[in-house]
Amino acid sequence: MMLLFRLNGQSVEVETAPDRRAVDLLRDLGAPHPDVKDVKEGCGTGECGACSVLVDGVHRLSCLMLAAQLAGREVVTASGLGSEAAPHAIQRAFADHGAVQCGFCTPGMAVAAAALLQDNMAPGREDIRRAISGNLCRCTGYVMIVDAIEAAAGKMRSDPSALHEERVASRKAAKSSRKATMPSRKKAGKS
C-alpha cells in the first residue's frame, strides 16, 4: 500500500506492506525519508516500551502497531521532540539530571514523559512513576528519570517562554507545520 502520514512534522509517503510492523517501517523508511532509529526495539511484545511513539499525541507502542495503522496519523518520536541543538525541555532535563545511562530506553522514556506532561503539568513522583511504568530501564533504577521529569515539568510551568523558544528552534529545524506535541497553554495554566 501507499502509506501517507506525518512523522516528526514532515509528510511521509512510502510504499509498504500494510502488515509491516510500525517499528520496522519507522526504523527503515528508506530514501528520501530519514530513518528514525531513535525508535528502539527491546522486546517486540509490548513489554519494554523502547519503541514508544506518540500517535496523534497518544503514547503507543510501535512494535504492536501495523504500518496501516499509521495512515493519516501524526507520529512523533524522540527525535521529533527535540534535537541536540534544540532539545525539548524533557530531553535537556534527562541530560542534566543523570537520567541517561546506556540510553537505549531513553528515547521511549522521553516520549512517555512527553505524553504525561501534555495531560498533567504538575505530576507528583508517583504520577511520574505510573506514567513511565510501561517503559523498562535496566540501568538507572528510575530515580534520576523521575527527577528529570519532575524538573522538566517545573521548568515548563515556570518558564514557558524558554520552552517556546526551544520549540520554535526545533520546529524550524524540523520544518514542522502542524499540531504541536507539547502541552497546551490551557493545561499549563492549571498549575
Binding site: D28, S79, L81, S83, E84, H88, A95, G98, P107
Partner: peptide, 26 residues
Amino acid sequence: MPRLSPPRADALSKATGAERYAFDVL
C-alpha cells in the same frame, strides 16, 4: 534533589535519539 554534576557527554545525544548503537547500524 541532588546537586547537578556536569551532564555526561553522551546524555543529550541519547536523550534526543541521535546516538547510534550497534543495533542501529544498517
